[in-house]
Amino acid sequence: MSRTIRVIKPGLETTVQDWPGLKGAFRYGFNHSGAIDHWSFRLANLLVGNKPGAPGLEAQFIGPTLLFESDQLFALTGANMQATLDGKSIPCWQTLEASAGQRLALGSAISGARTYIAFSGGIIAKPFLGSCSTHTMAQAGGINGRKLEINDEINIHSSTQTQKFTTPELIRPPKAKEKYWEIEMVVGPCDDWISDQGHQLFINSEWIVSPRSNRMGVRLEGPPLDFSSRAIDKAPEHGSHPSNCVDIGYPVGGINLCGDTPVVLLHEGLTGGGFIVPFTVPSSEFSKVGQARPHEIFKFKAVSVQQSQSKRHEINEICQTKNLRKLGD
């Protein structure tokens, strides 16, 4: 039998997401959607005995208030939104238990940007192109293809899970150090549109996260980059600005240069367009990009494709139930 949770307050922008989101429809203009900080998201699911990619909630900056209409195991990971259960403070990064009639209230994020809420059993949502993630642009997936609204009912699959866990500090994703994030990136696909000087400047500069950032992308403020001859001396169909090019597909995580503004493209960004993508943030760094707050600072570090892929593999190894600590042992 399924169980129900009622939305009392939706929060700023709370959506149903799964992981890794929609795959195979990029070619039709549908971006991946799905949880951005997939590391925290997977741990939340494992804490309640779900598969790591099961549908849960992603709350951004201000979390929701939810009423449990049945007993329910749940877990919170990611940003700290000063959560309470019936007014009492509750911790993140461990399995928690709610009884029917209890209220879970999340406030504003005091660190990080996105909190993940997993419910034992996982959220029941209508899949769209093979994923339960909310695809806001297509108005599909999740709950009615949109962010949560007041009085929405969230239905949860039944579950027999009773084991509780906690997450050792060691397996949690890294946090900002004094507002600074070191973000690994790989060069390309359009790296030859930027001059050597431009490459140096990109690596050596501090990039401030703009408040105009969302699930489509994280906008960065910093110095204008210097372009190579390929960007300046080019066929007219590329457009007039050095950052313009004949339309290309944008990889998720691509650092899109729109005029002088770099934008790290995220899971609901445009899938292509007429601006170059000189660098790409690999998915292994999305836990950082997804938790960055406005006015925090990115410092980029170039790594090879192979290095970024081994880091991705490491995170896959970390996000396993065997790495959690059982509570009550």
């Binding site: 990029f26 597909g249 990889p251 593999h313």
Partner: peptide
Amino acid sequence: IIDTTPSYNSLLVEYEPS
């Protein structure tokens, strides 16, 4: 190979590195 997205003069290939 998971997905292939063509554009005017390029092809973006998404793959599973494992």
